[in-house]
């Protein structure tokens, strides 16, 4: 059977807490091909081309005149994600336009790293879609993200991506473990 080529594999949506996400500095591509995906490297040691976050939308803003886009802040137990949706993400933009903060939202999007001329970094999420969810989904996400983060920390130094992370970040796994613990502890209240 030679009929099937290598099937297209959609990039998985990584689970990452806001405090780790904002530490992203390094991005890379696997090949020079125009269509090859760009990955952001998470400090805990995994490539990320897409992410799934659930948190509280606390604020949204419409910006631009000709090219309208929306910005929003989504808060998780460890910090804040900055999300954007412009005319290239029509679905997410229209959804965001409708949602009134505060609300629990699930966001699927791509990581975006921008270095300002003065050398500081703006790390944000370019949303592909946003939907309103409930508190239970948020709690499930915290568990899920804690588990995924701990899995990465446990495997740190053994995988190809985590070796790359060792080169590019000053990783202290214990600090991240602490963050995970704090995030989980907030669920008990």
């Amino acid at each position: 059977m030679t009929r099937r080529q290598i099937p297209f594999e959609r990039e998985p949506a990584r689970r990452v807490f806001a405090s780790e996400f904002r530490e992203i500095r390094y991005q890379f591509k696997e090949s020079d091909d125009e269509k090859s995906p760009t990955y952001a490297l998470l400090p805990s040691g995994i490539r990320c081309n897409r992410l799934f976050i659930v948190g509280t939308l606390t604020e949204k803003q419409r910006q631009g005149d000709q090219n309208v886009f929306y910005r929003g802040r989504v808060v998780d137990p460890t910090g804040t994600f900055f999300i954007m949706a412009g005319s290239y993400q029509p679905e997410a933009m229209q959804q965001l336009a409708k949602i009134e903060p505060p609300a629990f939202v699930a966001v699927i999007g791509k990581p975006n790293v921008y270095e300002t001329p003065d050398g500081s970094f703006l790390v944000s999420v370019r949303a592909e879609s946003i939907s309103v969810v409930d508190r239970e989904t948020r709690d499930l996400w915290v568990l899920d993200t804690a588990r995924e983060t701990l899995d990465r920390l446990d495997a740190f130094g053994t995988t190809e991506d985590s070796k790359m992370a060792q080169e590019h970040y000053h990783m202290q796994p214990e600090a991240y473990r602490r963050t995970v613990y704090d995030a989980l502890a907030q669920l008990q209240i």
Binding site: E136, L140, L143, L150, R177, R178, Y181, L184, A185
Partner: peptide, 21 residues
């Protein structure tokens, strides 16, 4: 649909805080 499981939370807290936390 998945539901929140407190036992899972306890397990993860142990994993995260198991050493030196």
């Amino acid at each position: 649909i998945l539901t929140f499981d407190p036992a899972e939370l306890a397990t993860l807290l142990n994993r995260a805080g198991g050493e030196g936390a």
